[in-house]
Design a protein around this nucleic acid. Structure first.
Length: 487
RNA sequence: GGCCCCAUGGUCUAGAGGCCUAGGACACCACUCUUUCAAGGUGGUAACCCGGGUUCGAAUCCCGGUGGGGUCACCA
């Protein structure tokens, strides 16, 4: 294979979308698999929609996902600059070439005129194509229009007959009738290139070997091929990856919930899980397997195993995947990543957060019971804060029983009598009491859990006791008794 | 609407003519483990869009329908 150079070319108008993230990921994996380069190119030719902070958002998202780039913003290379707004001279040179060779021409129609004609075409049920009316304007006519103050655009002279075939690595050969193409704009009246033009000039200039992009660009590809041909340039390989759809089978958008990777981070998802989930949407490994590290993906990834069909994004599976990573990642890693969420929630004091040893034990106890980092503050709450209320259903079930007050008081005395408050001792004390009274384990354990945590679920009771410490246990048992009597 | 792409359980997918009585994963249900909730283990419900061909044989190849998606800008 020729030397692999691929690129991801976002337009800095918003955030990195999960669909974009997956496309970038496919590009990155392909580059790493083949020992090639992954380039980030900023397509900022639409100055009206440009957002200053967007580029940083993108870069942060990539870094968070573990995707690095060999050339691009902050990483100069031999084919820079990597912002299209700084490459205008390149597009102008290419335009001059096209104009000189008769492959392009100036068009003086205004945006309003064009919109009007498109509207009319639609009304009459015709395809809204540009009618090439400026194609053969004489020099004199052009002068006249310029004199009127009209700022022209430059259009490509598209072939009127024949067929343009896209040899796509994923879709196979796709043919387009040239008669369906019109003389599209390559340079806007503001002197900036259009997407298709800038894309071709840059992909060629940057020696891109494989253009791997979303399916929605497939219909742009014949236009780009025409530009390559007009400029006398070699074609890259094309690969159009299927789209990611929302559950209602439409394009994924804000109204479907979290769609950009920053939101996933903020909702407590792990980058490992997002990457793993996303890569499995549209790509399948050669062996039946669900979990892959980035390194394993680099080894396994293959464009040949990318599916042709659009995939529906499933948040349940994403969440399941996240839960898996939450359980499997090193404990220290989870603790590190949980801290920002705990800080944000503000329910655990600074001092408690700094007691890393206890925090680690607490998180170890609950981590397989949560699916996202964002659930951790709530799950650890009672280890750090007093229990102020009891689960309503649980209270009805466990606090309303005959003799529960006496039972909890007795249990409290037994615990109070322990000189060493260990897992073994506490359990032993409880087992003994259970046996004495001829109770089922749950009859004592359930009300105790509710008293200590306010909840009906959580880690093993004796683990909770040890984590809470003797004093807290005694205090909470007393408080619960007080609460029950008060009702 | 024109053009283009696609079509295996609710969802992600395996499958490149006989290995398919269609496999795996999520979700769901049951059982199991268990002091609870999870996690884990075991089992289960559930799919080849329809119609024609081709072939001894089709989820797989061809054609036609249907359905879904994408795209038709001086946006990328």
């Amino acid at each position: 294979m020729t030397h692999v150079r691929v690129r991801f070319a976002p337009s800095p108008t918003g955030y990195l979308h999960v669909g974009g993230a997956r496309t970038a990921l496919f590009n990155w994996l392909f580059a790493r698999h083949h020992g090639g380069q992954f380039i980030l190119r900023i397509e900022d030719t639409d100055r009206a929609r440009l957002k200053e902070e967007a580029i940083d958002n993108f870069l942060n998202s990539f870094t968070w996902l573990g995707i690095d780039w060999d050339e691009g913003p902050g990483k100069d290379g031999p084919y820079g600059p990597y912002h299209q707004s700084e490459r205008i001279d390149l597009y102008q040179t290419a335009t001059k070439k096209l104009l000189a060779s008769g492959h392009a021409y100036y068009c003086f129609c205004t945006a309003e005129e064009l919109e009007e004609r498109r509207e009319q075409a639609r009304r009459e049920g015709r395809p809204p194509r540009y009618d090439s009316r400026c194609r053969d304007l004489s020099a004199a006519e052009q002068e006249q229009l310029r004199a009127k103050g009209r700022q022209p655009v430059v259009r490509i002279k598209a072939p009127e007959e024949g067929v343009t075939v896209v040899n796509d690595l994923i879709k196979g050969d796709v043919s387009f009738d040239n008669s369906t193409l019109d003389d599209f704009v390559i340079m806007k009246s503001d002197g900036f290139p259009t997407y298709n033009f800038a894309c071709v000039v840059d992909d060629s200039e940057m020696q891109i070997s494989h253009v791997i992009r979303a399916d929605e660009h497939l219909s742009n590809t014949p236009k780009q091929i025409i530009l390559y041909q007009a400029l006398g340039l070699d074609l890259p390989q094309f690969a159009h990856v299927p789209m990611i759809l929302a559950p209602d089978r439409t394009k994924l958008s804000k109204r479907h919930g979290a769609t950009n990777v920053e939101e996933y981070r903020d909702k407590g998802f792990l980058p490992e899980a997002l990457v793993n989930y996303l890569v499995l949407l549209g790509w399948s490994p050669s062996e039946e397997r669900e979990f892959f590290t980035l390194d394993e993906l680099v080894r396994e990834f293959d464009l040949g195993r990318v599916s042709k069909t659009a995939a529906v994004y499933d948040n349940e599976k994403m969440t399941w995947m996240n839960g898996h990573y939450l359980r499997e990642l090193p404990l220290e890693t989870i603790v590190e990543r949980a801290i920002p969420f705990l800080e944000q929630a503000g329910t655990v004091s600074r001092a408690d957060l700094d007691d890393r040893e206890r925090l680690t034990r607490v998180i170890s106890a609950i981590r397989e019971r949560v699916k996202t980092l964002a659930e951790i503050p709530d799950a650890v709450d009672y280890f750090y804060n007093e229990v102020t209320e009891y689960d309503e259903k649980g209270a009805k079930k466990h606090f309303a029983k005959e003799g529960v007050v006496e039972l909890l008081e007795t249990a409290r005395e037994r615990l109070a009598g322990l000189t060493e408050f260990t897992l073994e001792n506490t359990e032993e004390a409880y087992r003994q009491l259970i046996e004495e009274r001829g109770l089922s384990g749950g009859a004592l354990i359930h009300p105790t859990r509710l008293a200590l945590t306010g909840r009906t679920w959580g880690p093993g009771l004796f683990e909770v006791m040890i984590l809470l410490g003797k004093e807290q246990c005694l205090q909470r048992l007393a408080a619960a008794v007080h609460h029950i009597k008060g009702n």
